[in-house]
Design a protein around this nucleic acid. Structure first.
Lengths: 243, 243
DNA sequence: CTACTATTGTCAGTCAATGAGACAATAGTA
DNA sequence: TACTATTGTCTCATTGACTGACAATAGTAG
């Protein structure tokens, strides 16, 4: 893709990017049981990080994030939302950045723009877990799903970024149709409830949840599905198209 | 303050700022009747804009915004909140920036960093209208209060920025104690209600509002105040310190 | 075929919050 | 002293959420 090695030029302009601006993405998925996010591990560093990237000179911020998500997940049309900008001085740790580049076999030029201070825009994405086979980027060994409550220790302020993303997701839970983006086309009420519970981090009363979701009028009910379990089969639902 | 004329250097670094990053602040005030925001008018251009600025190389993003607010209002400890980042390509209009600089009597050097593309972080602030005498910056003729529903035509995407700020303020209205920051130390229930009404843009039932505010248990009630009007005098309230 | 278990869909009773109107209290005015 | 505008509070109705109960049912064990 990139013809220049971005570690071998001094200025962002030469690399084709805007200086000082990055994004970090918290990519949420749901495997039917638990809420997960995608975490990258850099080569030879034991550093875990959120998938992130930079903004090209002729690209909008949103497009830059969508490009990164496409590279990481193969998906287009992802549900994406900005939630916070991280601009403190504490997050400026050029040593870490240098370690990552060297771990990846790159020896950055003197005064390399990647060692400058960055202000990072946090985005969160909601994707359908089943439809993705995560791909690491050039500097990473892996890009894998981790349960939201069993994350490895993340570099820099990335733990705080995840916390803020989750907080925003919670606040938006009843405003936006979060379930639509995290679940497959068809799902049971129990699955929908589990999505809500894992985002909120607390149990929800079954009857109340069922009643309130149905009252919203945003669900289509379909034929029952026989799960093979020895009890009453649940209805299957999908979100209405115009919701 | 600044020893260099920031229009006379090519790079942001020489000027002491981070390239490509700016902020715009939507500063809300309440005069007892209506919600207002501060708008600057640039010299000789008829351009109206939100007060904004840049981030110094050794300054956090939040501190940069606080510095700008202090210069504009004289206040410290302002209630401040980030609400969105504006990073589209459409907002990159170097001609406008050049017009502003020339209107202010500055002829920018070739390839001046101020003519580059900027990504802007939107902040909103809530301040006590009475305690402020707004000060224009070097490039501006004026910095004045405008009623939220009678704004002049703003440059670039600033109208959208205001709309987004107001939307966020509405969403946060019951989560955060908005009234505390927009009202003087002591106020009547009617004034508090008017704050809520002007933010929401709709009328609120008086009795319901009064009951629900009192039920929150965040208000101290003080002696009545004689307004000079020919009707029952209202109680005066203040917010509890620990709220 | 029958009894049993786990889960689902629904409903009735209760409780809390809000919507809506009524009414007494009162500071100044005529 | 009568009147007006506004305020503080109350009651009743409505809405919605919380809670427990109960019938329905797909498979399992006997």
């Amino acid at each position: 893709m990139d013809k220049v090695d971005i570690t071998q030029v001094a200025t962002a302009k030469e690399a084709g990017y805007l200086a000082h601006i990055a994004y970090d993405s918290v990519i949420f998925g749901f495997d039917g049981k638990q809420l997960k996010i995608l975490i990258s591990e850099y080569h030879n560093t034991k550093l875990f990080a959120l998938p992130g990237g930079f903004v090209k000179i002729n690209e909008s911020l949103d497009d830059a994030v969508r490009r990164g998500l496409r590279e990481r997940t193969g998906l287009d049309n992802i549900y994406l939302e900005q939630f916070h900008v991280f601009g403190s001085l504490e997050r400026y740790i050029p040593e870490t950045m240098e370690m990552i580049m060297k771990g990846g076999g790159h020896n950055p030029v003197e005064d390399c723009w990647l060692l400058d201070r960055f202000i990072s825009v946090g985005y969160y994405a909601l994707i359908n877990y089943e439809s993705v086979n995560p791909q690491p980027d050039e500097l990473s060994d892996s890009c894998c799903w981790y349960n939201i409550d069993q994350l490895p220790t993340l570099m820099q302020d990335h733990t705080m970024i995840v916390a803020k993303a989750l907080e925003t997701l919670r606040d938006n839970l009843d405003k936006k149709l979060v379930g639509m983006n995290l679940l497959p086309e068809r799902f049971t009420m129990k699955e929908l409830q589990t999505v809500y519970e894992s985002i909120l981090g607390q149990e929800i009363r079954r009857t109340t949840f069922q009643r309130s979701m149905l009252a919203k009028g945003i669900l289509n009910r379909h034929e029952k599905q026989f799960s093979g379990k020895s009890h009453k089969a649940p209805f299957v639902y999908s979100f209405k198209k115009d919701a």
